[in-house]
């Protein structure tokens, strides 16, 4: 692939006018073997993730690990404070008992799991991002209204300006254009 001169390219943006069209287009892009690409729709299109061939997210594992860590930390915190640093007998109960510590253990577990979910999601999506090249394209604002888009990034190993453009045009795109970085 010959390097083109001028500004760095982000990739190709294809526009579709129905959910059915983008669904079939996604299947074709998936089958062509592209990896660094995404689709944009104004509303959730059922099973589009399958059409795009997206693998299950690792986020649940992050949440699970965070939740378990949180529960362990919550229990440890209570054990440490109530038996090592402030050993005070309250209501004749033992200094440390599993029962009394369940609510806080549970709460800290939930707190950490929620942190894992929110920050894990942001991290996996590479957010917050202050700018995205696609926002330069005026037509792209219709992705929140009535148009459907597929963007294939230039860093995809299979990306080739002519071939990729042809592929997108063959999928029935209304318009295909190159986007600058």
């Amino acid at each position: 692939m010959a390097k083109t001169k001028g500004p760095k390219k982000f990739g190709l943006l294809a526009e579709y006018d129905t959910p059915g069209a983008i669904f079939k287009a996604c299947e074709k892009v998936r089958d062509a073997g592209y990896r660094r690409w995404d689709s944009f729709t104004p509303f959730p299109v059922h099973n589009l993730d399958k059409a795009m061939g997206i693998k299950p997210s690792v986020l649940p594992w992050i949440v699970f690990a965070c939740g378990m860590t949180g529960a362990a930390c919550g229990m440890l915190l209570q054990w440490y404070t109530s038996t090592i640093v402030y050993p005070i007998v309250i209501a004749g109960k033992p200094l440390f008992s599993a029962q009394a510590n369940v609510p806080v253990t549970f709460e800290v577990g939930i707190l950490f799991a929620s942190f894992g979910a929110v920050f894990g999601m942001l991290g996996l999506n590479k957010l917050p991002a202050f700018h995205h090249p696609l926002f330069k394209v005026p037509r792209f604002s219709r992705a929140t209204d009535d148009r459907f888009f597929i963007a294939i990034e230039a860093i995809d190993p299979r990306y080739d300006l002519e071939k990729t453009k042809k592929l997108l045009e063959d999928t029935g795109a209304v318009k295909v254009e190159e986007v600058e970085e």
């Binding site: 209501a91 004749g92 029962q99 009394a100 369940v102």
Partner: peptide, 8 residues
């Protein structure tokens, strides 16, 4: 269980 355990 917890309330009964606590109130004793």
């Amino acid at each position: 269980y917890f309330l009964i355990w606590y109130a004793n």
